[in-house]
Computed example of a mutant assay.
Amino acid sequence: MISRLASTSSLPWCMGGDFNEIIHSDEKRGGRKPVRSYMEEFFQCLRGADLWDIRPKVGWFSWASGTRAKTYVCKRIDRFVAKNDWRLKFQDCSIETIPMAMSDHSAILLKMVGEERICDTRKDYFKFDFCWANEDQCRDIVKRIWEQDDSFTAKQRSRRTQAKREERRLRDYLTRLQSGPITDVNCELRRKALVDLKEVMDKDENYWFQRSRVAWLKDGDRNSSFFHARANGRRKKNRIEGLLSEGGLE
Rank of each mutant, 00 (worst) to 15 (best):
R211W: 07
K123D: 10
N223G: 05
S37T: 09
V73C: 04
L109Q: 07
S103G: 02
L243K: 07
A101M: 06
K83E: 00
R235L: 15
I95T: 00
K75F: 03
R4Y: 08
R87F: 03
E188D: 05
L243M: 07
S179M: 08
F90Q: 08
D18I: 07
Y72I: 02
E21P: 00
V35E: 08
L51D: 05
L170S: 06
F128M: 15
H24A: 14
V195C: 04
I182W: 00
I54L: 13
F130Y: 15
I240V: 14
K70E: 14
R4G: 10
D124L: 14
F61P: 07
K57P: 00
K192P: 00
L217H: 04
R222Q: 13
A6L: 02
S37V: 10
V113P: 06
K237S: 12
L249T: 03
W216N: 14
F90G: 02
S9C: 13
L88D: 12
V142Y: 01
R211T: 02
F61N: 00
F80W: 09
A6N: 02
I182G: 01
G31M: 06
L170V: 06
G17F: 05
A82E: 02
T71E: 10
R32G: 14
F43R: 07
R239E: 11
R117Y: 08
R168S: 11
V195D: 11
E116G: 11
F152D: 01
A64Y: 04
M201C: 10
L5R: 10
K75M: 09
